[in-house]
Every structure is written in structure tokens, then in C-alpha cells.
Simulated scan of single mutants.
Amino acid sequence: MHEHPLQRFFRSLRERPVFAWERYRQRDVLVIDHPLCQAVFSRQGAQLLHFQPRGQKPWLWCAAKWPHVGAIRGGVPVCWPWYGRHPSENAWPSHGWARLIDWKLLDSRSDEDGVHLHWQLQLCDWQVDLHADLGERMELRLSTEHQDSQPCQLSQALHAYWRIGDVGEVALSGLEGAQGYDQLSRAACQQEGELRVEGGCQRVFQHEGELQLKDHAWQRELRIDTGDSADTVVWHPGTRPLLGVSWDEVSEFVCVEAASGGTDSLCLAPGERAHLSLQAWVGA
């Protein structure tokens, strides 16, 4: 098992403040050390890169190597204001601008339940806010307000990379009977039984609510709730190579994402808001 690259900040026995900014791989990262959990955010993308409740193994995976510039692979990237390829502009970056831009941290506080953060990004006629509550559980809430005078299209995702013991020993339940689209075979699909992803998976399900990620190698069950998002996306590259990521690392994650606007792009009227959420906790 590879150590999470950002656990390096927590090796020292000295007492740390709850919130501390550090410089790592040419990015500003916010290191969080609370009695209930440890976490790391990147200012770039307001990206939660590491989350680990006390006494547990890490919940999120992050690549050991980062590019000098560009998107960081791992954690929970905020894909916004589109995810996947842009529908009309081929030269624009996959998964939108939000994960490439520095966000403002408007609020960070702690209490006996954990830590609470509010990040914000204003881009052209859009405002997007990310609220994070971290403690024994993890909750992310994304809210977009369209401030233009004309309607505009939106798609978005909270693209979570969940840390696991071994991809060959995990199963995802809760999707039984869900209709979806298999982007590898380019065909409609319906899930029968538990979903296993060892050979590669890129499916978009019309599903909302709770799933169970059963990790037999780590003897852990993560409950993942994608809220009332229109889609739940399950992704793993299988044997396809990922740039800068070793095969050993690839076997240590699976993506289960909350998404909306992918199958039917959202059309926001002026002043209208769109919401997306992702929660996780350890099952009984």
C-alpha cells in the first residue's frame, strides 16, 4: 500500500494549528489537523485532496506525481461549468475551468463536530460556492448562481477518487436496477447486482441517493450519497494507462461521482441557482 503523498504533513509529533497554509508542488495547500480528522485542500480548484478521520485509513486517493501546471489528479476535483469535454469548444480543457483556477477561502472555522469551510470562485457572470463540512463524515455542497442577463448551459460534477485497498476486491451496491449509459461500449445499460470495476468502467447512471462501496481488502464499507443529483458516474481506467500514474496507484482508487447536466445539460435562467452535493460516512 502506498502512503498518501499528503500524509507527510502529519508525520511530526509536534502539535499543529487546526488550519495552516503550506507550499507543496508549486501549489498553496491548506493543511487541516482537527481532533476528529486530518485533511488537505488545494487553493487551486478548492480541491479536497486528502481526508482521513482519526483512527481510520484515508478516504481519498491522490496521485503521487503532480504536473508543474494544470489539474491535480485525485481527491475531489470540482468539474465546472462543464464536465467531460466541452460540447462545442474542443480546445477548452476537459472538466471546465474551476479545477485550474485559484479560489478564495471566505471562511474556515472549527468546532467540536469538525471543520467548516467556504470557498468561492467568480468567473465572468457566474458565482460558484463550495461548502465543506469535515469530521467523522465528509460533506461537500456546490452551489452555482447564474448572474448573466441571458440563459446559459451548465454541467458539473464532484469527481471523487475514493481510496481503496485493491480495485479487484471492491464492489459497489445500491445501483441495482438503475438505468444508465456505458461510455466504453457506447450503449445503454442497466445494472444487475453489484458493480465491479476491475476491468475498467465508465458508466453514467440515472441515480440519486446512497451507495455502498464495499472494500474487502480493507474490510471497510463507505456509504456514499450523491444527493439529488441527476447522475451518478462510476469510473475506473482498467488497464488503460493514466499519464503520470503508475499501475500500482491505479489499483488503489475508484471514482464514484455526483454529477448533473451531463445527459441533459442544465439551462439556468438569469439569477437561477444549481446545486450539487456529495456525502460519505463509514457504514456499520
Score class of each variant (00 low, 15 high):
residue 158 L to R: 14
residue 144 T to D: 15
residue 144 T to G: 09
residue 42 S to G: 12
residue 127 Q to E: 15
residue 78 V to T: 14
residue 96 G to D: 08
residue 66 W to V: 03
residue 173 S to C: 14
residue 136 E to K: 08
residue 181 Y to N: 03
residue 137 R to T: 14
residue 211 L to F: 03
residue 60 L to F: 02
residue 23 R to Q: 06
residue 12 S to L: 04
residue 174 G to C: 07
residue 9 F to A: 01
residue 262 G to S: 14
residue 177 G to K: 04
residue 120 Q to T: 06
residue 14 R to T: 12
residue 25 R to H: 11
residue 155 S to G: 14
residue 125 D to L: 12
residue 283 G to F: 03
residue 93 P to H: 12
residue 5 P to S: 07
residue 46 A to H: 11
residue 138 M to T: 05
residue 172 L to A: 10
residue 29 V to N: 07
residue 113 D to P: 00
residue 200 G to N: 00
residue 183 Q to F: 08
residue 218 W to S: 11
residue 234 V to R: 01
residue 264 D to V: 04
residue 96 G to L: 11
residue 21 W to D: 08
residue 67 P to C: 00
residue 38 Q to D: 09
residue 50 H to K: 08
residue 19 F to I: 04
residue 101 I to M: 13
residue 259 A to Y: 04
residue 100 L to G: 07
residue 274 A to W: 07
residue 228 D to G: 04
residue 80 W to K: 05
residue 99 R to T: 04
residue 121 L to A: 06
residue 15 E to Q: 06
residue 88 S to K: 14
residue 282 V to W: 02
residue 49 L to W: 13
residue 144 T to M: 06
residue 43 R to L: 11
residue 170 V to S: 08
residue 31 V to R: 01
residue 33 D to L: 02
residue 265 S to T: 13
residue 183 Q to V: 09
residue 283 G to K: 07
residue 270 P to Y: 04
residue 137 R to L: 00
residue 141 R to I: 10
residue 228 D to R: 06
residue 236 H to G: 02
residue 168 G to I: 04
residue 276 L to Y: 09
residue 244 G to I: 03
residue 141 R to A: 14
residue 230 A to D: 09
residue 261 G to P: 02
residue 148 D to V: 08
residue 159 H to E: 01
residue 3 E to T: 05
residue 7 Q to L: 10
residue 211 L to A: 01
residue 249 E to Y: 13
residue 212 Q to R: 15
residue 25 R to C: 09
residue 38 Q to R: 15
residue 109 R to E: 05
residue 179 Q to D: 09
residue 66 W to E: 11
residue 67 P to K: 00
residue 131 H to N: 08
residue 53 P to M: 02
